[in-house]
Amino acid sequence: MSEYEYRLGELFCGPGGMALGAHFAADEVPNVNVQHEWASDYDQPTVDTYIHNIPRATPNSVPVEDVRDLDISKLGDIDGFAFGFPCNDFSVVGEHRGLHGTYGPLFQYGVNVLEQKQPKWFVAENVGGLAGANGGEAFRHILLSMKDAGYVPVVHKYRFEKYGVPQARHRIIVVGIRDDLHKDGIIFEVPDPAIAEYVPETSRQAITVPEIPADAFNHEFTRQSANVRRRLELIAPGQNAFTADLPEELQLNVKGARLSQIYKRLDPSKPAYTVTGSGGGGTHVYHWSDPRALTNRERARLQTFPDWFEFKGNKESVRKQIGMAVPPRGAKVIFKALFRSLQQLSYPSIEPNLKFPGVQP
């Protein structure tokens, strides 16, 4: 195996956005090869999607299992590790329970992989709200755990729309280099978004160029009720159900949270707002001119999945998979910078926008 061939392991792998981004990056950085070694997720349709689309993935290499029951010792050796641990308790939507919630402590299983497998590097992803969970102590605890496992973490809150993703998706990415490699001069630097490689893309461009074929995968249209259609017809592009001038019978009787995404129509001249996988009616992302929710293929376009990427499962499962995924184009940005760093190749970079004294160099 060459020095720059990396066997990749993943926890909380989702449908494969992170893995796809790693493969795309390897195609663009000389001498790099990425090989799927293993991955895991707890949801069967999600794993079916991963196996169907990610090279070398099989039912044996992608177990469907709750991470709390997964025997890490039986997983193969890896050179690189990726994990987008569940964000429910760190999201800006919800109770912000952080490490005290059901999902917050699950990051530890990723740290367990680092301790047992000692890959050369890792990439971890979570929502922007992670930095403020439990008054910032949750994130500091997570980073210290990564450092204690033998890694130098570099933390940055990426605004993926600045890197050519047609969506305002803001995520914290931690890239860790193993201590011995860092001492040998391998240092990850945050890629600079202000270069010609990253061309801004609007929601209209993403969805319409090229036109989506009628028989494309996951392109089923949703039947909208008469009331929803009437409501959307009165909501201008970029507006939502609370900022539009709606008659009383079409107004929403919502107490408490008045999410800006509820029945919000896309502004075709800008990147989309954040595509999510949770929530009920009113949160499905709405077309700027047609009075309807987007199809799953249109959502997948906003998440930068190629049209050949076929999601498995029923329509609601697919919507959830798309919303929970890491956009492959965003992941590719991180992995290209990482693969260049590992070869000590220079590239335009910026200072990380998140610093934690005592954790980072």
Rank of each mutant, 00 (worst) to 15 (best):
H219P: 02
E137M: 15
E201N: 06
N112R: 15
N112E: 11
L106R: 09
L143K: 00
P119H: 12
G16E: 06
G185F: 15
K120P: 01
K183M: 09
V123D: 00
E161H: 12
R169K: 15
L342Q: 01
G110T: 09
P30W: 04
V174I: 15
R265W: 10
Q239E: 10
R140L: 13
G277W: 08
F339C: 08
F85Y: 13
D79F: 13
T46D: 00
S145L: 08
N253Q: 07
A194N: 10
P200W: 13
H219A: 05
G280I: 11
I212W: 08
N218W: 05
F335A: 02
H52N: 12
K255G: 04
A325T: 11
G14W: 02
Q118R: 15
A325Y: 09
W308L: 11
R340V: 01
A337F: 09
P327W: 00
N218P: 07
P210T: 11
V333Q: 06
V199T: 10
S260R: 14
E37G: 04
R7G: 03
G9C: 09
L70S: 07
L246A: 13
T283L: 15
T283W: 00
S225T: 10
D89V: 14
I172F: 06
V67E: 02
Q343M: 12
N31I: 04
A194H: 11
F242Q: 07
